[in-house]
Design a protein around this nucleic acid. Structure first.
Length: 512
RNA sequence: GCCGCGGUAGUAUAGCCCGGUCAAGUAUGCAGGCCUUUCGAGCCUGUGACCCGGGUUCAAAUCCCGGCCGCGGCACCA
């Protein structure tokens, strides 16, 4: 379309033309099925959301389906967190992702057993009780991979192996005593692919699975379960991280043995949000080690979806970033400024502007000929947000921030939307009325609150590893806005999200 | 060490498949101006990039080779 009518498009271009995703290879409208397959061992972060959003967008673009599948087949090393199943779904819903079907792998064990048996019958897999998992160290890693010697069962035929596999399922083997291997070529250049493991034993009496308890001891590995499910669920397009590139080669063996067609597989690079802690394992460790210094998985210093939500980032901003980043296989490093820019576009028109005076200095109004009534719209460009009025009279007390006080002491300033005053050591002396006059004098326009109609408020501002506490005075009249709004623009400060109103009004800083 | 992927401004991305229209587009950032309830938004101006070296070609960001750099995998994790 672009190629045909470039001149038509250029006209419409000015309107913030939204970037779109490139087409998917071999995609047929109505037939595309994508999937998001998280491990429910923790909540998802913005990096995980990349493939979730892309999978959803593509499914929508081609009027296809998206499947959500929890990959929880390791109750030992990556023990699922029972709350995570729902927390992840909550995060996805919040992101605006709708999935058509939902599966949990640990509930599909009989299916994997059946497929495994068929694979054994085809001569594609065998049980290995010889090559016992050893303690690996970095030095002998290479040696270990090379040291694989095919056990006699490799050529023993289906009936022997079927019997051994039944034993695995029945719990006749302990952890590390038997695995089911998929037969590959033995001379593969990447040694890690040779006769890869499809099932292993996990002692679920010791490591119960949060969903299936101790019912199963023979568990499929990621590569086996993924290949089987992607095929059975009719996935046509897999979008996943490039760390899975070599897994694709393993999974291909399953497809080849059964004569299935391989889905299109796209590997995207890693995405990180600069200055945020992303790694699930690191976050878990931090929460374990310093539980009182962090507010859980949604602590604003983490890059989790829950944290960004709490922080006041809108889901649409995340979506736009992800579409902008696209499906390249290069790693991407997104800055918070970038995310903030998208977010600002969304929240700026709908956030009431209120006066928050940090580090307040209280000053009396002097020499005011008559009271001034000021009506301030909550948003000059969006009248729908309404307005509030203040009356300033002789001897009323107002507060301005210490920053302005220091900077402009002895100079003429303009209190926003009221009048111009001479800022003295401990009072504000009326000078003149007009905005024109202020401009003429080069007087800065500063924000203020009437102390009698303000209240204390606190703002938490994440800065690197720290959470800074900013105290100040906030207009009481902002309260009218609560309920309808949770993001506000603090004049000359930045955007803030309301967190709670008791015991003290608390905000979290979003961005400039 | 062995396999594999990738390198366009500070960041992200378009262009690379099908070489010229690319003295490289867009967004964000940064600097300045206008405007304004602001150090916000909007509008305007400026800033800044094809990793390096060869080769092919009339012509290379685009094709080929080598180097350098970055990243991923090398688990009975996902």
């Amino acid at each position: 379309m672009e190629g045909k009518y470039p001149e038509l498009l250029s006209e419409e271009r000015r309107k913030e033309e939204e970037k779109t995703l490139p087409p998917l290879p071999n995609a047929i409208e109505g037939k595309v099925v994508t999937r998001f397959a998280p491990n429910p061992d923790f909540v998802i972060h913005i990096g995980n959301s990349r493939v979730a959003i892309l999978s959803h967008e593509y499914a929508r673009m081609y009027k296809g389906k998206m499947i959500l599948r929890f990959e929880d087949t390791d109750p030992r090393t990556k023990k699922p967190m029972i709350e995570a199943y729902n927390l992840i779904k909550e995060d996805l819903r919040w992101l605006g992702i709708k999935w058509d079907e939902e599966y949990i792998q640990s509930l599909r064990m009989p299916i994997y057993y059946e497929v495994a048996k068929k694979l054994i019958e085809l001569g594609g897999a065998y049980v290995d009780t010889v090559n016992i998992k050893g303690a690996k160290t970095d030095e002998d890693e290479e040696e270990q991979t090379k040291a694989f010697i095919p056990p006699p069962t490799r050529e023993a035929g289906p009936s022997v192996n079927l019997e051994l596999f039944e034993k695995m399922i029945n719990g006749d083997f302990g952890e590390g005593e038997a695995v089911l291997r998929v037969k590959t070529r033995l001379d593969l250049p990447d040694k890690s692919l040779v006769d890869w493991v499809a099932f292993r034993i996990i002692d679920t009496d010791v490591h119960p699975h949060p969903i299936t308890g101790s019912r199963y001891v023979a568990w499929p590995t990621y590569n086996f379960a993924v290949a089987v499910d992607d095929h059975l669920l009719g996935i046509t397009h897999i979008i996943r991280g490039k760390e899975h590139l070599s897994n694709t080669y393993k999974q291909r063996y399953i497809y080849d043995y059964f004569g299935w067609t391989m889905p299109e597989t796209i590997h995207v690079g890693r995405l990180k949000l600069e200055g945020f802690i992303m790694s699930k394992s690191v976050i878990k460790k931090i929460l374990m080690d310093k539980p009182f210094h962090y507010q859980g998985p949604e602590d604003p210093r983490f890059g989790t979806i829950a944290a960004l939500r709490k922080r006041g980032i809108r889901p649409e901003a995340i979506r736009r970033i992800m579409i902008n980043v696209g499906i390249k296989s290069t790693d991407a490093s997104i800055s918070y400024a970038n995310l903030a820019a998208e977010n600002r576009k969304i929240i700026e028109p709908i956030s009431p502007r209120v006066s928050f005076v940090w580090s307040p200095v209280r000053l009396k109004i002097k020499n005011l000929p008559s009271c001034i009534k000021a009506t301030l719209p909550f948003h000059p460009d969006n009248p729908a947000l309404g307005s509030r009025s203040y009356e300033l009279c002789e001897n009323d007390e107002v507060a301005i921030t210490m920053e302005d006080y220091k900077l402009f002491n002895g100079k003429i300033i303009r209190l926003m939307e009221t009048a111009n005053f001479l800022l003295s050591k401990d009072y504000l002396e009326f000078h003149s009325h007009g905005l024109e006059k202020a401009k003429e004098l080069g007087a800065p326009i500063i924000h203020w609150v009437k102390t009698a109609e303000s209240e204390e408020a606190v703002l938490y501002k994440p800065e690197g590893d720290e959470l800074i506490l900013v105290k100040g005075l906030l207009e009481k009249k902002f309260i009218d806005k609560i309920g309808k709004h949770d993001t506000f623009q603090f004049l000359r400060y930045g955007f803030a999200k309301l967190e709670s109103i008791s015991p003290v009004t608390t905000f979290i800083y979003i961005h400039e």
